[in-house]
Design a protein around this nucleic acid. Structure first.
Lengths: 189, 189
DNA sequence: GTCTATAGCCGGATAGAC
DNA sequence: GTCTATCCGGCTATAGAC
């Protein structure tokens, strides 16, 4: 097995453990045990514990950044853009729910360069979202509530999907997308 | 100053640090430094690091449990109940936003009895919420989307308020309540 | 590529002086 | 009530045998 594949296995196992206890509470011994080897052996495939964390988080953050850039630059209507953002989050969650736990809760344990890079991506992502909502209210596609509240409540729900989706085993991805779009856009009343 | 007050100061300082880095990444030396004393001195006021965590989390969980029980047992209509739940979350967030970080992210580091007690309270809370939404759909007060999606998306937003509210310094609590109720109940379109 | 052994450091917590 | 000094265990990471 090539080292790259072995590294991917380590990252995957680490994602699950980081989700359960958080980056700081997971030891290299825990991770090695989950892989069925000794802690020292991990270092043939990775440089450090920190490298595992940054691999998980930066890959996901770049995925969101690329997706958001495409949506943001398109010439669709606001509502269509928001629907695409909801789909983006659901798609990423289906593919890597465990990694999203680190993205949401352990980003502050990234070190220098990666921390700055991550924070910039997150800022740009939120700002793109905010601009889309802003334009939507100007075009009267969206109600003129406080824009920050709209951005916050929508993003909160999408960012927390990773916690909730794995528990809903019997729900179809397409139904989830449809209902999630309805709930977030049209409300529940 | 009585020991009880000093303990409260420690818990408050710890809440801030736990919010920034998480329970596991904060050391007793970090906490002592924030209090302007040495780590050993903390132990004149608390039994252990674990005691600080359980004080933060259990107090808050009990506050939510009491609030939810009152709402749940009242004879109000469903929509009024949901509005009261939104207000409950906003009120607790205004009073103790830092502590809510531990409630949301560090509950898994509670030990045996407190962990079980917490998990029971959280289960009951969610179940009460679910029953309220269920009744609302039966009475046609609420649209008949997938109930789990409604419960999840509403709770996600309310639980994440602690991250967002402190950044919105210029927003009035009453306006926040009003707009949050509108966004969650009526949607944004 | 995995192992054993261990370096070197830092963690929570205690003892006892003041 | 706070301090200094310290115990002791667990942490990340490395060295070197197989």
């Amino acid at each position: 097995m090539k080292p790259e594949n072995r590294k991917q296995e380590i990252v995957k196992a680490a994602s699950i453990l980081f989700k359960e206890k958080g980056y700081s509470a997971v030891t290299m011994r825990d991770l090695a045990k989950a892989m069925g080897i000794k802690a020292a052996s991990l270092y043939n495939h990775i440089q450090s514990k920190q490298e595992i964390l940054s691999t998980i988080i930066i890959d996901l953050a770049e995925e969101f950044t690329e997706g958001m850039n495409k949506i943001s630059e398109s010439d669709q209507k606001t509502i269509q853009k928001i629907e695409n953002i909801i789909e983006l989050h659901i798609d990423v969650t289906l593919r890597n729910a465990d990694g999203l736990a680190s993205l949401n809760n352990d980003w502050m344990h990234l070190e220098e360069d990666n921390l700055q890079y991550f924070e910039k991506m997150r800022y740009d992502y939120e700002n793109n979202f905010r601009k889309i909502v802003q334009k939507g209210t100007e075009d009267k596609e969206i109600k003129s509530f406080n824009i920050e509240i709209i951005v916050f409540s929508t993003l909160s729900t999408l960012r927390t999907l990773y916690l909730w989706y794995p528990k809903q085993k019997d729900i179809d991805a397409d139904i989830l997308k449809k209902d999630m779009i309805s709930v977030l856009l049209s409300g529940i009343v």
